[in-house]
Nucleic acid binder design. Sequence first.
DNA 1: TTAACCCATAATCATTGGGTTATGGATTGG
DNA 2: CCAATCCATAACCCAATGATTATGGGTTAA
Lengths: 112, 112
Amino acid sequence: MMTDSRSADRDAATDALFKALSDGTRRALLETLVREGEQNVQALTQQSGVSQPMVSRHMAKLKRAGLVTARRTGRETWYAARVKGLAPVIGWMAVHGALWSQRFSALEGLGK
Amino acid sequence: MMTDSRSADRDAATDALFKALSDGTRRALLETLVREGEQNVQALTQQSGVSQPMVSRHMAKLKRAGLVTARRTGRETWYAARVKGLAPVIGWMAVHGALWSQRFSALEGLGK
DNA sequence: TTAACCCATAATCATTGGGTTATGGATTGG
DNA sequence: CCAATCCATAACCCAATGATTATGGGTTAA
């Protein structure tokens, strides 16, 4: 049930998700997880080009947005991409109706 | 041709696009254009809940991101959603390969 | 137990960015 | 020509954020 006509674009989860994706460093971190699977903070720090604390904070934000999961074993924290996390993005695009939806067929062409 | 292994997530256009979508007010403005078609700044201001200068600045950002087009006639500026503008978002998702691509089939179910 | 290691948080800084009101340029209407 | 209208830009405020170094808590190893 829609409580406000503007709620679709003001949804807190959707907002957190788009904000999480709006930074290049975070997107790069996420892509590393997608490509290379679960990684600990050490490994992510080495490939990211930013400091370890920054990686921790970026991962926290990605986690709050639902884009990664965290699994702690001993002193290491292992992060993994959470595939379902992008669903709200797809949902947001779908909300715009047939106009945008038509373009989704182009996905097949883009799928490399 | 890929000039840098990290370039996919550091591409300036992609960054501008995600940043443009990361604000709820801008997404609401964009959705208005998608739903109701071309609108001038006046109309957008009335429905947005923010001041006219803020609308102008948001629209400028959406335009730089390639999500809207602007057409000036006399003293009015008419903005329209640019459907192709979302392609890089879809492209970015596709870059992540089959892992994400599988989920795109869920679009059909989400398409209302 | 002590040292080394992994990670998260705190403190700090500079920049970005959303918001406002004020202003001004360009266009239309009397 | 003058006034009203439409929009963009400027000036400003404050909160959020990306980044750093410093610190500290918890875990493994010697």
